[in-house]
């Protein structure tokens, strides 16, 4: 991260024979990768479960993706301690909001809140890349991505973390149809309209490929699928829709529930 690197000192100002000062570095990088893709009436948010520091695997199961409300899921990546504590604070703010307004916070409001919370620590930032996915008030699937100090935008898809540079170009090609040409006479491509089955296999392929080529990615994968109310679940729960080795569970409504449904799919990744 260019932000926190001590710029190499010019030779002229290099101190000579001064004692080496050891300053406490409050940050670390815990590897891993996250990704989210939105569809017309669903959103998929995924992350691997490895937590590492340098060449050490700290644990093969640490959570990076969090269900916030019935229609919002947040993925965090970067410095795990900051990530966990940031999510804790976001959940606390969401609870306060619900007490004050007797309704859960909407997705775009959560996105704006996350921006102010991140920017609030602009001068001692949370070293965390956030991706928020879920269902917007109009029922569309949405993905918001953030940088550590709060810049954010709504997108059709986003990858972040250790394998961002491996996954994002793949997504640019498959989701945004970059470097693709529609067949002569056919409709132009519109990003964000792929069927769930296609999106799921893109997510799985992204992570299995990143696992092959990046040492900080692997062990396991958690995929959250948020569906708009009234949407069919046949393309997820139907016979033979899930790939081999996948386990699925439905996460019950957090509050009174307003019809949106959230599913969690787990799959093992290679451990080497």
């Amino acid at each position: 991260m260019a932000l926190y690197h001590n710029a190499p000192m010019a030779h002229s100002q290099e101190p000579t024979a001064a004692p080496i000062e050891h300053r406490f570095n409050p940050y670390s990088d815990n590897g891993g990768s996250i990704l989210a893709i939105s569809g017309k009436d669903f959103s998929v948010i995924a992350g691997d479960t490895r937590q590492s520091e340098g060449y050490n695997i700290q644990t093969r199961y640490a959570r990076k993706v969090w269900q916030l409300t019935d229609k919002a899921v947040l993925a965090t990546n970067g410095f795990a301690a900051d990530g966990n504590n940031f999510v804790k604070r976001v959940k606390q703010r969401l609870e306060w909001y619900e007490h004050a307004h007797h309704k859960p916070m909407g997705l775009k409001s959560i996105a704006r809140m996350i921006q102010t919370m991140l920017y609030g620590k602009r001068f001692f930032p949370y070293y965390v890349y956030n991706i928020l996915g879920g269902i917007e008030e109009d029922g569309s699937g949405a993905v918001y991505s953030f940088d550590p100090v709060g810049s954010y935008e709504r997108e059709a898809c986003r990858a972040a973390g250790a394998a961002q540079s491996l996954i994002q170009p793949f997504l640019d090609n498959q989701i945004y149809f970059k470097n693709q040409q529609p067949e002569p006479g056919s409709q132009p491509f519109i990003p964000g309209n792929l069927p769930l089955a296609t999106v799921l296999s893109l997510v799985v392929d992204s992570f299995t490929s990143a696992t092959e080529r990046h040492i900080e990615v692997g062990d396991g994968m958690e995929i959250y699928i948020v569906m708009n109310k009234g949407r069919t679940t046949d393309d997820l729960l139907g016979e033979g829709k899930l790939q081999k080795g996948m386990q699925i569970e439905e996460l019950g409504a957090l509050g009174e529930g307003s019809g949106e449904r959230t599913f969690l799919v787990r799959q093992a990744l290679k451990r080497d």
């Binding site: 940050y27 700290q58 644990t59 199961y61 795990a80 301690a81 504590n85």
Partner: peptide, 12 residues
């Protein structure tokens, strides 16, 4: 479980 000076936590 594990905790350290950075506040990093994990279980295994």
């Amino acid at each position: 479980a594990y905790v350290d000076l950075l506040g990093t936590t994990y279980t295994a």
